[in-house]
Computed example of a mutant assay.
Amino acid sequence: MLTYTPGSTIVHRLDPRTKLAFQFAFALVAFGTLTLPRLVGLFVIGLGCLHLADLSIRAVLRAYWFVLVVLALGPLIAAITLGPPWLRLDPAVVSLRSVARIVPILFVSAAYIHATPIRETRAAIQRTLPGRVGQLLGVGVALTFRYVPVIRADLRRVRDAIRARNGDTRSLRERSQRLTVLMVVRALRRSDQLAVALQARCFAWNPTLPRLRFSRIDLPVWGLSIGFVAFAAIDLLGF
């Protein structure tokens, strides 16, 4: 699971608002009309973001392996037909080109998670979206980033405990039921602990968040983001 890692790379030093804007603009271009040269360009930019954030592609693939497996099933399912010739290549190629655009978006998001503290993400959201909407979204994102690794760790512990008790000898249905029940119990227990922890720490909707300030290195990234948005708009309007 990818988490924030302190560092001094260019991506680490960018303002979180700049990084969020870049992700948004990059996704707009990725979901536009996709050609092979554009797909190659998306991968080059995505890999470049990983390099600038000092994050290895192996770590990203290990963190997102399940998502990549699900994406890989799309072209396979699209190729299957219920009659002769049973497999068709053209739908598989179309599906492959559709799901391939997700991979560079994952690369960019992985670079963001690796190089951005959770508190800065919350500060960027709350200072971009005014009022209670921004506060609610900021709190939700912060709690999600913090608790997804915790839930994954609970899942691994429950699975290891089932195996230690020879649970892997049971049928898949029984193992799935047991795992689901235990995970629901742990999730409810975690929610109670979270509520108590928030009360103990006098949870505030508008806490003192870190100061955010743009620097010179943010300017070219903003320029690139604006260029991406303009390119996506021109592509959408068909100019």
Rank of each mutant, 00 (worst) to 15 (best):
residue 25 A to P: 02
residue 25 A to D: 05
residue 25 A to W: 05
residue 26 F to G: 08
residue 26 F to I: 12
residue 26 F to N: 05
residue 26 F to M: 12
residue 26 F to S: 14
residue 26 F to P: 04
residue 28 L to A: 13
residue 28 L to P: 03
residue 29 V to F: 08
residue 29 V to R: 15
residue 29 V to I: 13
residue 29 V to L: 15
residue 29 V to G: 01
residue 30 A to F: 02
residue 30 A to N: 03
residue 30 A to T: 06
residue 30 A to C: 01
residue 30 A to V: 05
residue 31 F to I: 13
residue 31 F to Q: 03
residue 31 F to V: 07
residue 31 F to G: 03
residue 31 F to K: 04
residue 31 F to W: 12
residue 32 G to D: 10
residue 32 G to S: 15
residue 32 G to H: 12
residue 33 T to K: 11
residue 33 T to D: 07
residue 33 T to R: 04
residue 33 T to A: 08
residue 33 T to F: 04
residue 34 L to T: 06
residue 34 L to P: 00
residue 35 T to F: 10
residue 35 T to H: 05
residue 35 T to V: 09
residue 35 T to G: 11
residue 35 T to K: 09
residue 36 L to N: 02
residue 36 L to D: 00
residue 36 L to I: 14
residue 36 L to G: 02
residue 36 L to W: 11
residue 37 P to E: 02
residue 37 P to S: 08
residue 37 P to H: 04
residue 37 P to L: 00
residue 37 P to D: 03
residue 37 P to Q: 07
residue 37 P to F: 01
residue 38 R to W: 09
residue 38 R to C: 03
residue 38 R to D: 04
residue 39 L to W: 12
residue 40 V to T: 10
residue 40 V to S: 04
residue 40 V to F: 11
residue 40 V to C: 02
residue 40 V to Q: 03
residue 41 G to Y: 12
residue 41 G to I: 10
residue 41 G to Q: 13
residue 41 G to C: 14
residue 41 G to V: 14
residue 41 G to T: 13
residue 42 L to W: 03
residue 42 L to G: 06
residue 42 L to I: 11
residue 42 L to N: 09
residue 42 L to V: 02
residue 43 F to P: 08
residue 43 F to E: 14
residue 43 F to N: 06
residue 43 F to L: 10
residue 43 F to V: 11
residue 44 V to D: 01
residue 45 I to E: 10
residue 45 I to M: 15
residue 45 I to D: 09
residue 46 G to Q: 10
residue 46 G to L: 10
residue 46 G to I: 06
residue 47 L to A: 07
residue 47 L to M: 13
residue 47 L to F: 15
residue 48 G to L: 08
residue 48 G to E: 07
residue 48 G to C: 08
residue 48 G to D: 06
residue 48 G to K: 04
residue 48 G to T: 12
residue 48 G to H: 07
residue 49 C to M: 15
residue 49 C to Q: 02
residue 50 L to K: 06
residue 50 L to C: 11
residue 51 H to T: 10
residue 51 H to Q: 07
residue 51 H to M: 09
residue 51 H to L: 15
residue 52 L to K: 11
residue 52 L to P: 05
residue 52 L to N: 01
residue 52 L to H: 10
residue 54 D to L: 01
residue 54 D to M: 00
residue 54 D to R: 07
residue 54 D to Y: 00
residue 54 D to I: 00
residue 55 L to W: 02
residue 55 L to N: 04
residue 55 L to D: 03
residue 55 L to A: 06
residue 56 S to N: 15
residue 56 S to Q: 14
residue 56 S to W: 14
residue 57 I to W: 15
residue 57 I to R: 11
residue 57 I to Y: 12
residue 57 I to K: 09
residue 58 R to Y: 09
residue 58 R to S: 11
residue 58 R to L: 14
residue 58 R to V: 15
residue 59 A to S: 14
residue 59 A to D: 13
residue 59 A to F: 01
residue 59 A to E: 08
residue 59 A to N: 09
residue 59 A to H: 08
residue 59 A to V: 00
residue 60 V to R: 04
residue 61 L to I: 05
residue 62 R to P: 03
residue 63 A to K: 01
residue 63 A to L: 02
residue 64 Y to N: 13
residue 64 Y to I: 06
residue 64 Y to L: 14
residue 65 W to A: 08
residue 66 F to M: 07
residue 66 F to C: 01
